[in-house]
């Protein structure tokens, strides 16, 4: 007796998504999964406070300590706080998102990811929700730092448009590190590896960018390395957009590279997601 010849009974209790409604269904599922992440974020306000302590320290302690570096010939900025705000925003975007893999790892260990994979949810909705949730929380974090800087007396000569571009590019940078972190978490399945790589990467990536010091004042080799550093691309984009006379070519080129890398990182995390499914 072969059961493959039997007519399949209609699925119980659930409506099957057909052709045209697939996209709508996928978007709805992405929204439900994103909502879940926002809710988790909102229910743990302590987490938000903790993620803001570091930026405050960099902004106000570090900023006060190195206040006089602007007097160095060739620095070219009026106040160090003005200079520091984009640096701290970008650094915070990296440091908040590079831990995304820990959350994914926890979901794997708890069995939550497998529970979702057994449902008819679109696979891409699961990953898209991560990207959306990460970009939005990064944008909120960036806005808060902009506000803190403004309270501390920072000037934003590029106006709202400049700030908007800074927020967007820091979200894109956050997506890059979030997606890589997720891919790493699914591949190695070890907290230690994520902790190790993050601790190893964060400060070098920040110091090898224009976060704290203009490239003109860096040693030559650092300038060369910084050119290939995505953290620096994001900073160049933000700084170019925020100046009183924006350099649109720099915004487009550095911003473009950042977005391209973000797209690649998301693609890579989707690939590792598929390979995770094969290794369950």
């Amino acid at each position: 007796m072969s059961s493959t010849t039997l007519p399949a009974p209609a699925p119980a209790g659930a409506c099957a998504a057909t052709g045209g409604s697939r996209l709508v269904e996928g978007a709805a599922q992405t929204w439900y999964m994103t909502q879940r992440q926002f809710m988790a974020f909102a229910r743990q306000p302590a987490y938000l406070v903790i993620t803001l302590i570091q930026p405050v320290i960099w902004l106000f302690l570090f900023g006060a300590l190195f206040r006089k570096v602007v007097e160095l010939p060739g620095f070219g900025s009026g106040s160090y706080l003005d200079y520091l705000v984009p640096g701290v925003i970008v650094m915070s975007a990296v440091s908040a998102n590079m831990w995304a893999g820990m959350g994914t790892l926890e979901e794997i260990e708890r069995g939550t990811l497998n529970r979702f994979l057994i449902t008819p949810v679109h696979r891409s909705a699961l990953m898209n929700a991560n990207v959306v949730a990460q970009s939005v929380t990064t944008a909120i974090q960036s806005l808060i730092i902009i506000l803190l800087g403004w309270i501390g007396g920072a000037d934003y000569p590029g106006g709202v448009l400049g700030l908007l571009i800074l927020v967007l590019v820091s979200s894109a940078l956050g997506t890059i590190f979030g997606a890589f972190s997720n891919a790493l978490g699914m591949l190695v399945r070890q907290r230690e590896s994520i902790i190790g790589i993050n601790t190893f990467l964060l400060l070098p990536l920040t110091f090898l960018s224009s976060a704290f010091m203009p490239p003109a004042l860096m040693p030559h080799w650092m300038q060369v390395v910084a050119r290939f550093n995505p953290v620096n691309w994001a900073l160049e984009t933000g700084r170019a957009a925020m100046s009183a006379h924006p350099h649109w070519w720099s915004v487009l080129s550095h911003g473009g590279w950042t977005l391209l890398l973000a797209a690649f990182a998301v693609w890579l995390s989707l690939r590792t997601f598929r390979s995770y499914q094969k290794s369950v």
Binding site: R36, M39, A40, R43, Q44, E109, R110, G111, T112, N114, R115, I118
Partner: peptide, 11 residues
């Protein structure tokens, strides 16, 4: 119903 719970603890 898998061995590991899978329910979202925060929800």
């Amino acid at each position: 119903v898998a061995q590991r719970s899978g329910a979202d603890p925060v929800a």
